[in-house]
């Protein structure tokens, strides 16, 4: 068993009378892809928003077993979760910096490293060599990821001008440029054609094998979920209704009911758009 990276315990998120996430507990392991699936409005994105500090959970503890010691995410401010706990994420509706170039998007992701190297701007303003080296390193890292997502030739184009699928991959690359220990992907295959989602599978398993980081994956595309997840958590109305390996989950009657609304079908949860 791989070591646990993220422990979610009794996470509850209320919006007024609506309970979006209801007493949810699960764990994600390092070097594994943990998928969170469930019908629309099940509370998947809300879990991510709690993890990355955009929402303060009503109840619950979110422990990240970081190399430097355990961190309680629910007590940290949003940008610190990314900066210190090194939890990176992508968004369900892509959030690139559309009028900046592809390369700039990746460089901005390395802001904190560069900022320190620039002596909080003053050093770099006077041309310290330390900053120049740091910038060179940032460029190399960006190029590496550009090659991995096949966008080297478009490095100097505006990110907003890329086709949809490229934007999705660029957003993942940008998240990876922050050097995360946990990567949270919100529907990375949404809007991709079957060939592109097959490529995405390879890309994500590549990240898992190479970087040895934990990946949390929200996805409706079952070819992606069933193909690459090590562990699946199924949500419905904010509650965990099942969890386990892809094989277990796809046969779980509660899951089938949640997806199809009728008990007899033994089909894989239907692919939805």
């Amino acid at each position: 068993m791989k070591p646990v990276l993220l422990e979610v315990e009794h996470l509850t998120m209320r919006f007024g009378g609506l309970i979006a996430v209801d007493d949810l507990s699960f764990a994600a392991r390092q070097g594994e892809i943990t998928a969170i699936i469930g019908p629309n409005g099940a509370g998947k994105t809300t879990v991510f928003n709690c993890l990355t500090g955009f929402y303060k959970p009503t109840v619950g503890r979110l422990t990240l077993h970081h190399p430097a010691g355990p961190l309680l995410l629910e007590q940290m401010e949003g940008f610190r979760i990314a900066a210190r706990a090194r939890v990176a994420r992508t968004f369900q509706n892509i959030r690139l910096f559309p009028r900046m170039t592809v390369l700039e998007n990746l460089i901005v992701a390395q802001h904190n490293v560069l900022m320190r190297a620039s002596g909080f701007t003053l050093g770099a303003l006077f041309g310290l060599p330390r900053y120049r080296h740091a910038e060179q390193d940032a460029l190399e890292r960006s190029c590496l990821w550009l090659e991995r997502i096949g966008l080297v030739t478009r490095a100097n184009d505006e990110a907003g001008s890329l086709p949809y699928g490229d934007q999705r991959r660029l957003e993942i690359a940008r998240a990876m440029c922050t050097d995360p220990v946990l990567l949270c992907l919100d529907e990375p295959a949404a809007g991709l054609n079957p060939r592109e989602s097959a490529e995405l599978n390879q890309f994500l398993t590549g990240i898992r094998e190479r970087e040895k980081i934990g990946i949390l994956l929200i996805e409706h595309d079952m070819s992606v979920v069933m193909g690459i997840s090590d562990h699946i958590v199924v949500l419905d109305y904010g509650k965990r209704i099942a969890s386990g390996s892809p094989g277990t989950v796809r046969r779980d009657p509660a899951v089938i009911r949640a997806y199809l609304g009728e008990p007899e079908s033994d089909a894989v949860p239907a692919e939805r758009t």
């Binding site: 990355t52 500090g53 955009f54 949003g78 940008f79 610190r80 979760i81 990314a82 900066a83 210190r84 990176a88 994420r89 968004f91 959030r95 690139l96 910096f97 559309p98 009028r99 900046m100 700039e104 460089i107 901005v108 992701a109 802001h111 904190n112 900022m115 940008r174 998240a175 922050t178």
Partner: peptide
């Protein structure tokens, strides 16, 4: 660059630790 990124998308900036 962070200024410009902030102009483009503040939420994305926070998710990147800015």
């Amino acid at each position: 660059r962070a200024w410009e990124a902030l102009r483009e998308d503040e939420i994305a900036c926070r998710a990147l630790g800015i």
